[in-house]
Nucleic acid binder design. Sequence first.
DNA 1: CGATTATGATTAA
DNA 2: TAATCCTAATCGC
Length: 262
Amino acid sequence: MPEGHTIHRIARDQTADLVGGPVHTATVQDRFADGAARVDGRTIERIEAYGKHLFQWWEDAEVLHVHLGLFGKWTRRTSPPPPPAGEMRLRLEGPAHTWDLAGAITCRLVGPAERDEVVAGLGPDPLRRDAKPERMWARLSRSRQPVGSLLMDQTVIAGIGNVYRSELLFLVGVHPTRAGRDVTRDEFDRLWAETRHQLQLGVRRNRIVTRRPEELTRSAPKARPEDALYVYHREHCRWCGSPLDVLPLAGRRTWACPVHQT
DNA sequence: CGATTATGATTAA
DNA sequence: TAATCCTAATCGC
């Protein structure tokens, strides 16, 4: 279940597994049969992630655009893979490993221009070297919207989802109901830095663990799922035990500590 | 075995 | 704001 870190990790792993040699495709869903057939046996030149979007640059300027949505999943298997299961939408078979896609909200073959259009509609992605935080600041500092909603808006910042939203605002001590324009420049700088740091950790671990390492080693070195987070989906603040605020923002629930977040 | 829920996003109302 | 699409795991009965 993906936020930006998941997609960047997939781009990295797929690059190692699939880029450079011919890739055999297959599908069991008619929906994408045409696209799969079109690139079958061809080579992937490059794979990039932008926010929650994945772009595979196939030879001859064919770009496979995949967005997992809430349910989508890439599954990595060893090649040769078992016969495809029922819900699989696309299979990419490389020499040593095969990637199966299921449940994606978007899976389509486009050209570079359409890839650029998608990217143009996204805010800066803190995991990319070319990210420009000033673009996010420009939106945030002018908006009356609550910062909890702005963080979920992919045109403001690309790659944040419901877990990171709650956790990041907790880590920088900003309450999600605060208007974007009431976030100070200093708070924004810390938010951006924390976001970059946490997403980078997420890519490395392939999992969201926002809790500070020193705390984790004390309580549970392996970070059981219930130890990984400070506020998301919790009833009480992990630091002070206060009952958390639970707010619907941008159509999803957000959790915040009324003591540590102002 | 059906209802509920989940780290997403677009479209219609 | 609500309905809708995508899928799988979990929970209550």
